[in-house]
Amino acid sequence: MQGIVDAFAPLYAMWQSFEAFMAGPGSPGLLGYWIVVVLMMTGFYIVIAHDNLVKKIVGLNVFQVSVFLFYILMAKVSGGTAPILADGIEKYANPLPHVLILTAIVVGVATTALGLALVVRIRNAYDTIEDDEIQAVEEEEDT
């Protein structure tokens, strides 16, 4: 697995400088969370503001991934490593959020799969995947 980790080395370097900035004096140390919040809200916005059914699901994905990121952020311990026990390492990241997020990712993909399946059926039934058009059709049916 170290290979995979190494592949991300440049990114890691970037991250470390970023981390240094966040943990540095005068920084609230919350910047990571704020970015996550912005991400979440972007996803949330996509879900509620867009009419396209596929896009809604993409938004949902973005929203959920950001929430996962939030969990992972909180699990981090400065100077720690991945929670795989090895000799000579004292500090590990908190494993529990990782476990939770593993579960949540699965839930996420399950929801996505179902949602998309519904979209396909809706498309076949209504010939459109735009929510406002579907609503227009349904209102017509109601009256």
Binding site: V5, F8, Y12, F68, I84, H98
Partner: peptide, 15 residues
């Protein structure tokens, strides 16, 4: 990628 740098390799793998 972010998960990897945050020490969550398992999660990263899955994601």
């Amino acid at each position: 990628a972010a998960y990897v740098v945050l020490d969550a390799v398992d999660v990263a793998f899955t994601e």
